[in-house]
Amino acid sequence: MEQVIGKYNYWIYIILMMIGFYAMIGKKNLVKKLIGMNIFQTSIILFFISTGSKKGATIPIVSNGHEGIHRAIEAFQYMNPLPHVLMLTAIVVMVSTFGVALALLLMIYRRYQTLDEDEILRLRRK
C-alpha cells in the first residue's frame, strides 16, 4: 500500500501513459489517436519532472548574492534542474510533432472528407 500511495506521482504517469497508449492503438478516429499521442508524451514529461523534484526544495539558484558562495550549498534544498531542462526540449519536440500531425490530418481530411480510419481504408481500397 505504501508503494502505491508513496509513489502516487509515478502511478499517475503510468495511468496516463496507458490511456494515451490505448487511444493511439485502439481509437479509430485519427484525431483521437493524435490526442492519445499527446497524452502519452505528456505522461513522459510528467515522469521526468517528478524525478527531478523534491518535497520542500526550491529552484537551484544560489541566493544571497555574493555571500552565497561562502555558504555551504545543501543539495537537498534544491531540485535537480536537468530533467526540467530536458523536458523543455522534449516539449518543443512534442509540439512540433503535434504540428506536423495536424498538417497531415488536414491533408487526409481534404482528400477523403473523413478522419475515420476504417472509412479511409475503405475508400483507399476502391
Partner: peptide, 18 residues
C-alpha cells in the same frame, strides 16, 4: 496514400521515440 501512411508512421515513430 502518403499522408495516411505518414500519419501511421508518426504514431509508431512517436511510440518508439517515447
Amino acid at each position: 496514400g502518403a499522408p495516411f501512411a505518414s500519419f501511421n508512421y508518426m504514431i509508431y515513430g512517436t511510440i518508439g521515440a517515447c
